[in-house]
Design a protein around this nucleic acid. Sequence first.
DNA 1: ACACTGTTTCAAATAATGTTGAAACAATGG
DNA 2: CCATTGTTTCAACATTATTTGAAACAGTGT
Lengths: 127, 127
Amino acid sequence: MTEDEICRGASLSLPPDVEEALCQCGGIAGLVERLPEEGILERESALHRALADPFRLKILAMLAVQPFCVCVIKAVLGIADSKLSYHLSVLKTAGLIVGEAQGNWIIYRLTGEGSVWAQQIAGSGRS
Amino acid sequence: MTEDEICRGASLSLPPDVEEALCQCGGIAGLVERLPEEGILERESALHRALADPFRLKILAMLAVQPFCVCVIKAVLGIADSKLSYHLSVLKTAGLIVGEAQGNWIIYRLTGEGSVWAQQIAGSGRS
DNA sequence: ACACTGTTTCAAATAATGTTGAAACAATGG
DNA sequence: CCATTGTTTCAACATTATTTGAAACAGTGT
């Protein structure tokens, strides 16, 4: 096996410049090694999945103003109770919001990570 | 209708502190107004949907090192051609990567937005 | 023209997510 | 204890995303 074949990690034919760059990265094996760990990728993709819905982004945007109870969020979004509850649970599971009982109501607010993302949403329409 | 009722936008009963805060936000109507536009929310959630998969995060991570052709990406990820092609198309549609033909191969690289997100992934395991 | 390689497309099967309405729960006030 | 209000849970269903394998396409070299 030639040195080039070792670099490539298999017998791939490639454009010359890609092949050279690949060698400098330690070949296929080198690239595989430097990928983020599976656990990190899982967590990261789960986070983005939670952010991948307009209702949920709206919820984060309004909680960035102020913590609110479910009934206010419901009035702003104009959706059914159970639907809202589902989306709240997705955000809660992702660690973006937390709910705390206060008398008759449950007040939801952003977590630290939730407010980072809420800011990002607020800023996404900037010029 | 009392001023409070105007603030609430409807006859909701609320914890006193939430009610006051709601009034200062312009009530339900005020909150609805300050939500990001529908178009922005759609775009933002579509972006996160594209980032919501470990294979796609891996692709972004490796393209952050260097542009590569499909066959190298395939070797690193160890998945079938058509599956990879699907994930590449999701990333392409989201504007995170672009592919350019070069001889026999198609070389994919990050767009500006793609590299912003790729950095975010790379940094997510930091101490 | 032919065979080959790298890549994409397609349709069918499967899996994951989101929606709905009804029912359940928990706390409050009568 | 009962009725009410705010919220969650559940199961059925609808929708959307992902995976698969086969077939198609485009470009190269023969």
